[in-house]
Protein backbone atom coordinates (compact mmCIF):
# COMPACT_ATOMS: atom_id res chain seq x y z
CA UNK A 1 0.00 0.00 0.00
CA UNK A 2 2.77 2.44 0.92
CA UNK A 3 4.80 1.90 -2.24
CA UNK A 4 1.59 2.18 -4.25
CA UNK A 5 0.94 5.47 -2.47
CA UNK A 6 4.49 6.69 -3.16
CA UNK A 7 4.21 5.79 -6.81
CA UNK A 8 0.92 7.67 -7.07
CA UNK A 9 2.50 10.60 -5.25
CA UNK A 10 5.31 10.88 -7.80
CA UNK A 11 2.79 10.62 -10.60
CA UNK A 12 0.66 13.32 -8.98
CA UNK A 13 3.67 15.60 -8.60
CA UNK A 14 4.75 15.13 -12.22
CA UNK A 15 1.32 15.79 -13.71
CA UNK A 16 0.72 18.56 -11.17
CA UNK A 17 3.96 20.25 -12.20
CA UNK A 18 2.76 20.23 -15.80
CA UNK A 19 -0.61 21.71 -14.81
CA UNK A 20 1.20 24.30 -12.73
CA UNK A 21 3.42 25.42 -15.60
CA UNK A 22 0.40 25.91 -17.88
CA UNK A 23 -1.59 27.57 -15.10
CA UNK A 24 1.23 30.12 -14.74
CA UNK A 25 0.54 31.31 -18.27
CA UNK A 26 -3.15 31.74 -17.55
CA UNK A 27 -2.58 33.50 -14.28
CA UNK A 28 0.11 35.92 -15.50
CA UNK A 29 -1.95 36.96 -18.50
CA UNK A 30 -4.98 37.35 -16.28
CA UNK A 31 -2.91 39.37 -13.85
CA UNK A 32 -1.92 42.06 -16.32
CA UNK A 33 -4.93 42.02 -18.66
CA UNK A 34 -7.87 40.49 -16.74
CA UNK A 35 -8.24 38.22 -19.74
CA UNK A 36 -9.03 34.50 -19.84
CA UNK A 37 -6.67 33.50 -22.62
CA UNK A 38 -8.53 30.61 -24.19
CA UNK A 39 -5.73 30.21 -26.75
CA UNK A 40 -3.25 29.25 -24.04
CA UNK A 41 -3.86 25.50 -24.30
CA UNK A 42 -2.72 25.72 -27.92
CA UNK A 43 0.71 27.01 -26.92
CA UNK A 44 1.01 23.90 -24.79
CA UNK A 45 0.14 21.84 -27.89
CA UNK A 46 2.58 23.77 -30.10
CA UNK A 47 5.52 23.07 -27.78
CA UNK A 48 6.17 19.44 -28.78
CA UNK A 49 5.45 20.13 -32.45
CA UNK A 50 7.95 23.00 -32.63
CA UNK A 51 10.43 20.90 -30.66
CA UNK A 52 10.14 17.98 -33.08
CA UNK A 53 10.45 20.30 -36.07
CA UNK A 54 13.65 21.94 -34.77
CA UNK A 55 15.11 18.70 -33.46
CA UNK A 56 14.63 16.77 -36.70
CA UNK A 57 15.89 19.82 -38.58
CA UNK A 58 19.11 19.74 -36.53
CA UNK A 59 19.49 16.01 -37.06
CA UNK A 60 18.90 16.54 -40.79
CA UNK A 61 21.71 19.07 -40.86
CA UNK A 62 24.07 16.52 -39.40
CA UNK A 63 23.43 17.24 -35.75
CA UNK A 64 25.73 17.97 -32.85
CA UNK A 65 25.88 15.87 -29.72
CA UNK A 66 22.41 14.35 -29.07
CA UNK A 67 21.93 16.11 -25.73
CA UNK A 68 23.00 19.43 -27.26
CA UNK A 69 20.47 19.01 -30.09
CA UNK A 70 17.71 18.45 -27.56
CA UNK A 71 18.79 21.43 -25.49
CA UNK A 72 18.86 23.73 -28.52
CA UNK A 73 15.47 22.48 -29.66
CA UNK A 74 13.97 23.00 -26.20
CA UNK A 75 15.26 26.56 -25.91
CA UNK A 76 14.22 27.31 -29.50
CA UNK A 77 10.67 26.10 -28.85
CA UNK A 78 10.43 28.30 -25.76
CA UNK A 79 11.54 31.32 -27.81
CA UNK A 80 9.45 30.57 -30.91
CA UNK A 81 6.22 29.83 -29.04
CA UNK A 82 6.88 32.85 -26.81
CA UNK A 83 7.31 35.15 -29.81
CA UNK A 84 4.12 33.73 -31.30
CA UNK A 85 2.37 34.63 -28.06
CA UNK A 86 3.70 38.19 -28.27
CA UNK A 87 2.54 38.50 -31.89
CA UNK A 88 -0.93 37.19 -31.08
CA UNK A 89 -1.31 39.65 -28.22
CA UNK A 90 -0.19 42.48 -30.49
CA UNK A 91 -2.61 41.73 -33.33
CA UNK A 92 -5.57 39.92 -31.81
CA UNK A 93 -5.89 41.29 -28.25
CA UNK A 94 -4.33 44.75 -28.09
CA UNK A 95 -6.77 46.40 -30.55
CA UNK A 96 -9.62 45.25 -28.31
CA UNK A 97 -8.47 46.77 -25.04
CA UNK A 98 -11.01 49.55 -25.04
CA UNK A 99 -13.93 47.21 -25.66
CA UNK A 100 -14.61 45.55 -22.36
CA UNK A 101 -13.54 42.05 -21.48
CA UNK A 102 -15.76 39.85 -23.59
CA UNK A 103 -14.32 40.87 -26.97
CA UNK A 104 -10.68 39.89 -26.21
CA UNK A 105 -11.85 36.65 -24.62
CA UNK A 106 -13.72 35.70 -27.75
CA UNK A 107 -10.81 36.78 -29.89
CA UNK A 108 -8.68 34.37 -27.86
CA UNK A 109 -11.21 31.67 -28.57
CA UNK A 110 -10.93 32.38 -32.29
CA UNK A 111 -7.12 32.28 -32.05
CA UNK A 112 -7.38 28.89 -30.38
CA UNK A 113 -9.39 27.57 -33.35
CA UNK A 114 -6.88 29.12 -35.77
CA UNK A 115 -3.80 27.63 -34.06
CA UNK A 116 -5.29 24.19 -33.62
CA UNK A 117 -6.57 23.90 -37.17
CA UNK A 118 -3.34 25.35 -38.57
CA UNK A 119 -1.41 22.51 -36.94
CA UNK A 120 -4.02 19.99 -38.07
CA UNK A 121 -3.78 21.19 -41.66
CA UNK A 122 0.03 21.14 -41.75
CA UNK A 123 0.83 17.88 -39.96
CA UNK A 124 -2.48 16.01 -40.05
CA UNK A 125 -4.99 15.26 -37.29
CA UNK A 126 -3.62 11.87 -36.21
CA UNK A 127 -1.55 11.43 -33.04
CA UNK A 128 2.20 11.31 -33.70
CA UNK A 129 4.85 9.49 -31.74
CA UNK A 130 7.02 11.82 -29.67
CA UNK A 131 10.55 10.51 -29.12
CA UNK A 132 11.73 10.49 -25.51
CA UNK A 133 14.24 13.20 -24.67
CA UNK A 134 15.76 11.16 -21.87
CA UNK A 135 15.59 7.36 -21.97
CA UNK A 136 12.88 6.11 -19.64
CA UNK A 137 14.46 3.84 -17.06
CA UNK A 138 12.78 2.93 -13.80
CA UNK A 139 14.40 4.05 -10.57
CA UNK A 140 13.62 2.53 -7.21
CA UNK A 141 12.65 5.32 -4.81
CA UNK A 142 11.79 4.17 -1.29
CA UNK A 143 10.07 1.11 -2.63
CA UNK A 144 8.04 2.90 -5.28
CA UNK A 145 9.00 2.67 -8.93
CA UNK A 146 9.69 6.01 -10.58
CA UNK A 147 10.86 6.54 -14.15
CA UNK A 148 13.62 8.94 -15.12
CA UNK A 149 11.08 10.81 -17.26
CA UNK A 150 8.80 11.49 -14.29
CA UNK A 151 11.77 12.55 -12.24
CA UNK A 152 13.11 14.76 -15.04
CA UNK A 153 9.73 16.46 -15.49
CA UNK A 154 9.49 17.21 -11.81
CA UNK A 155 13.02 18.63 -11.59
CA UNK A 156 12.71 20.70 -14.76
CA UNK A 157 9.32 22.09 -13.77
CA UNK A 158 10.47 23.03 -10.29
CA UNK A 159 13.57 24.71 -11.74
CA UNK A 160 11.40 26.72 -14.14
CA UNK A 161 9.08 27.74 -11.31
CA UNK A 162 11.95 28.78 -9.06
CA UNK A 163 13.48 30.69 -11.98
CA UNK A 164 10.22 32.49 -12.66
CA UNK A 165 9.75 33.39 -9.01
CA UNK A 166 13.30 34.81 -8.82
CA UNK A 167 12.73 36.70 -12.06
CA UNK A 168 9.41 38.20 -11.03
CA UNK A 169 10.52 39.09 -7.51
CA UNK A 170 14.10 40.08 -8.10
CA UNK A 171 14.57 41.81 -11.42
CA UNK A 172 13.55 45.15 -12.85
CA UNK A 173 11.43 43.51 -15.56
CA UNK A 174 9.74 41.42 -12.89
CA UNK A 175 8.84 44.59 -11.02
CA UNK A 176 7.25 45.91 -14.23
CA UNK A 177 5.10 42.84 -14.47
CA UNK A 178 4.02 43.00 -10.85
CA UNK A 179 3.32 46.72 -11.08
CA UNK A 180 1.26 46.30 -14.23
CA UNK A 181 -0.78 43.57 -12.53
CA UNK A 182 -1.37 45.81 -9.55
CA UNK A 183 -2.63 48.85 -11.41
CA UNK A 184 -2.32 49.64 -15.06
CA UNK A 185 -2.87 53.38 -14.70
CA UNK A 186 -0.66 53.99 -11.71
CA UNK A 187 2.25 52.06 -13.14
CA UNK A 188 2.09 53.91 -16.44
CA UNK A 189 2.03 57.17 -14.49
CA UNK A 190 5.18 56.02 -12.71
CA UNK A 191 6.94 55.57 -16.01
CA UNK A 192 6.57 51.84 -16.43
CA UNK A 193 6.05 50.81 -20.02
CA UNK A 194 2.95 48.75 -19.48
CA UNK A 195 2.82 47.50 -23.05
CA UNK A 196 6.29 46.03 -22.67
CA UNK A 197 5.26 44.32 -19.47
CA UNK A 198 2.28 42.84 -21.30
CA UNK A 199 4.48 41.65 -24.16
CA UNK A 200 6.88 40.14 -21.66
CA UNK A 201 4.05 38.24 -20.00
CA UNK A 202 2.87 37.02 -23.38
CA UNK A 203 6.41 35.79 -24.04
CA UNK A 204 6.96 33.97 -20.75
CA UNK A 205 3.46 32.47 -20.41
CA UNK A 206 3.30 30.70 -23.80
CA UNK A 207 6.96 29.74 -23.46
CA UNK A 208 6.27 27.98 -20.17
CA UNK A 209 3.20 26.41 -21.76
CA UNK A 210 5.39 25.04 -24.56
CA UNK A 211 7.77 23.57 -21.97
CA UNK A 212 4.84 21.88 -20.25
CA UNK A 213 3.74 20.52 -23.63
CA UNK A 214 7.15 19.00 -24.28
CA UNK A 215 7.10 17.39 -20.83
CA UNK A 216 3.60 16.04 -21.34
CA UNK A 217 4.41 14.66 -24.77
CA UNK A 218 7.59 12.95 -23.59
CA UNK A 219 5.67 11.50 -20.65
CA UNK A 220 3.00 9.90 -22.81
CA UNK A 221 5.20 9.51 -25.91
CA UNK A 222 2.55 11.04 -28.12
CA UNK A 223 1.33 14.39 -29.43
CA UNK A 224 -1.77 15.46 -31.32
CA UNK A 225 -3.35 18.75 -32.40
CA UNK A 226 -6.25 18.49 -29.93
CA UNK A 227 -4.14 17.77 -26.85
CA UNK A 228 -4.29 21.39 -25.68
CA UNK A 229 -8.06 21.67 -25.23
CA UNK A 230 -8.70 19.42 -22.25
CA UNK A 231 -5.36 20.01 -20.53
CA UNK A 232 -5.77 23.74 -21.05
CA UNK A 233 -9.17 23.66 -19.41
CA UNK A 234 -7.78 21.73 -16.46
CA UNK A 235 -4.81 24.02 -16.06
CA UNK A 236 -7.18 26.96 -16.10
CA UNK A 237 -9.12 25.23 -13.34
CA UNK A 238 -5.84 24.90 -11.44
CA UNK A 239 -5.15 28.62 -11.87
CA UNK A 240 -8.60 29.48 -10.49
CA UNK A 241 -8.17 27.00 -7.66
CA UNK A 242 -4.97 28.70 -6.57
CA UNK A 243 -6.45 32.16 -7.02
CA UNK A 244 -6.17 33.62 -10.48
CA UNK A 245 -3.61 36.39 -10.84
CA UNK A 246 -1.39 34.90 -8.15
CA UNK A 247 1.83 33.26 -9.36
CA UNK A 248 2.44 31.03 -6.31
CA UNK A 249 -1.28 30.28 -6.43
CA UNK A 250 -0.99 28.85 -9.94
CA UNK A 251 1.83 26.54 -8.87
CA UNK A 252 -0.05 25.42 -5.78
CA UNK A 253 -3.23 24.95 -7.80
CA UNK A 254 -1.42 22.84 -10.36
CA UNK A 255 0.07 20.46 -7.79
CA UNK A 256 -3.21 20.33 -5.92
CA UNK A 257 -5.19 19.47 -9.04
CA UNK A 258 -2.63 16.81 -9.93
CA UNK A 259 -2.98 15.30 -6.47
CA UNK A 260 -6.80 15.46 -6.46
CA UNK A 261 -6.99 13.79 -9.83
CA UNK A 262 -4.44 11.10 -9.21
CA UNK A 263 -5.57 10.12 -5.75
CA UNK A 264 -9.19 10.51 -6.72
CA UNK A 265 -8.67 8.12 -9.59
CA UNK A 266 -6.61 5.72 -7.54
CA UNK A 267 -8.61 5.60 -4.34
CA UNK A 268 -12.14 6.60 -5.28
CA UNK A 269 -13.09 3.14 -6.61
CA UNK A 270 -11.62 1.55 -3.49
CA UNK A 271 -13.31 3.95 -1.08
CA UNK A 272 -16.70 3.77 -2.79
CA UNK A 273 -16.51 -0.03 -3.14
CA UNK A 274 -16.31 0.20 -6.91
CA UNK A 275 -19.48 2.23 -7.21
CA UNK A 276 -17.79 5.40 -8.40
CA UNK A 277 -15.22 4.46 -11.00
CA UNK A 278 -12.26 6.25 -12.55
CA UNK A 279 -14.52 7.74 -15.22
CA UNK A 280 -15.62 10.31 -12.65
CA UNK A 281 -12.09 11.70 -12.33
CA UNK A 282 -12.90 14.98 -14.06
CA UNK A 283 -16.16 15.42 -12.17
CA UNK A 284 -14.17 15.08 -8.99
CA UNK A 285 -11.71 17.81 -9.99
CA UNK A 286 -14.48 20.21 -10.98
CA UNK A 287 -16.53 19.45 -7.88
CA UNK A 288 -13.55 20.24 -5.63
CA UNK A 289 -13.09 23.50 -7.52
CA UNK A 290 -16.71 24.52 -6.97
CA UNK A 291 -16.48 23.61 -3.27
CA UNK A 292 -13.28 25.61 -2.77
CA UNK A 293 -14.77 28.65 -4.50
CA UNK A 294 -17.89 28.48 -2.37
CA UNK A 295 -15.83 28.85 0.78
CA UNK A 296 -12.96 30.92 -0.59
CA UNK A 297 -14.47 32.88 -3.49
CA UNK A 298 -11.09 34.21 -4.65
CA UNK A 299 -9.29 30.87 -4.70
CA UNK A 300 -6.71 29.64 -2.21
CA UNK A 301 -4.02 32.30 -2.57
CA UNK A 302 -6.01 34.95 -4.43
CA UNK A 303 -6.42 38.42 -3.03
CA UNK A 304 -9.58 38.56 -1.01
CA UNK A 305 -11.45 41.26 -2.82
CA UNK A 306 -14.11 42.72 -0.63
CA UNK A 307 -17.36 43.89 -2.13
CA UNK A 308 -16.39 47.54 -1.78
CA UNK A 309 -12.94 47.40 -3.28
CA UNK A 310 -13.69 45.24 -6.29
CA UNK A 311 -11.42 46.46 -9.04
CA UNK A 312 -13.86 45.70 -11.78
CA UNK A 313 -17.38 46.49 -10.69
CA UNK A 314 -18.67 45.58 -14.11
CA UNK A 315 -18.22 41.87 -14.33
CA UNK A 316 -18.75 41.61 -18.06
Amino acid sequence: MLDYFLQQLIFALAIGAIYGLIALGYTMVYGVMRLINFAHGEFFMLGPYVYTFIFSGLIGLGGLAPMLDSAIAIIASFVIVGLLGVAIERFAYRPLRAYGRLAPMLSALGMSIVLQSAVRVTVGPQPVHFPAIVPSTPIDALGGMVTTVQFGILVAAVLLMVGLTLFVNGTRLGIWIRAASESWTTSSLLGIRVNRAVSLVFFIGPGLGAMAGIMYASYYGIMQPTMGSVIGLKAFTAAILGGIGSIPGAMLGGFLLGAIETFGTAFLPILSFGYIGTEYRDVFAFAVLILVLLFKPAGLLGETVSEETTVAKKDY
Partner: peptide, 16 residues
Protein backbone atom coordinates in the same frame (compact mmCIF):
# COMPACT_ATOMS: atom_id res chain seq x y z
CA UNK B 1 -19.16 34.71 -7.00
CA UNK B 2 -18.19 37.44 -9.38
CA UNK B 3 -16.93 37.68 -12.93
CA UNK B 4 -14.44 35.06 -13.92
CA UNK B 5 -15.06 32.89 -10.91
CA UNK B 6 -18.69 32.64 -11.88
CA UNK B 7 -17.62 31.86 -15.45
CA UNK B 8 -15.38 28.99 -14.40
CA UNK B 9 -17.95 27.54 -12.02
CA UNK B 10 -20.67 27.54 -14.67
CA UNK B 11 -18.13 25.97 -17.02
CA UNK B 12 -17.40 23.25 -14.47
CA UNK B 13 -21.11 22.69 -13.97
CA UNK B 14 -21.58 22.19 -17.72
CA UNK B 15 -18.72 19.71 -17.81
CA UNK B 16 -20.02 17.84 -14.75
Amino acid sequence: LRGDYLAIVTLSFGEI
